[in-house]
């Protein structure tokens, strides 16, 4: 199978590499670009551990073909941190127990990041709905809600300080 030479824009950088037409975006990220933050948890597009942002919308990297993502902006968990420091949501997930084993966490980081980009002050229901496409087996989700709320408060405080 002939490989295609493609360019992906990942976390703000253009990366050119050879990619088989049947390569998923998840495999391209993990194997070719060595961005192993996005995880493979299922094989049936149900778990959300591979969630990345494509042009600002959360999508499943395991369900996209890498070659079909040319020309789009891809944000992975590795691109969430701000200036080498933890983003508010990353810090809050640590402090509030939002991450236990951490395997689902990259997917949740993207899901929450997208939520807060689109809606900086979501209601409890909106938070719950935004998280409902990602499975977690450790936390029962309860502490994640606290983390998201803490991150929102931290962002608000940060904005006030500016």
């Amino acid at each position: 199978m002939k490989k295609l030479l493609i360019t992906l824009n990942v976390n703000g950088r253009d990366v050119e590499f050879a990619c088989a037409p049947n390569q998923t975006l998840l495999d391209a990220l993990r194997l070719d670009l060595r961005l192993t933050g996005s995880k493979r948890g299922c094989d049936d597009s149900s778990c959300g551990a591979c969630t990345v942002e494509i042009d600002g919308e959360p999508m499943l990297a395991c369900t996209l073909l890498a070659a079909a993502c040319e020309g789009q902006r891809i944000l992975t968990v590795e691109g969430i941190a701000e200036h080498g420091a933890l983003a508010a949501i990353q810090k809050a997930y640590g402090e509030w127990g939002g991450a236990q084993c951490g395997f689902c966490t990259p997917g949740f980081m993207i899901a929450v990041h997208s939520l807060l980009e689109q809606n900086p002050d979501p209601s409890e229901e909106e938070i719950r709905a935004a998280l409902s496409g990602n499975l977690c087996r450790c936390t029962g989700y309860n502490q994640m809600y606290q983390a998201v709320k803490a991150a929102i408060e931290a962002e608000k405080a940060g904005r006030r300080a500016l």
Binding site: S45, E57, P58, M59, A130, S132, G133
Partner: peptide
């Protein structure tokens, strides 16, 4: 399905 799947 779920929000992420509805985006796709």
């Amino acid at each position: 399905a779920s929000p992420v799947l509805r985006n796709m």
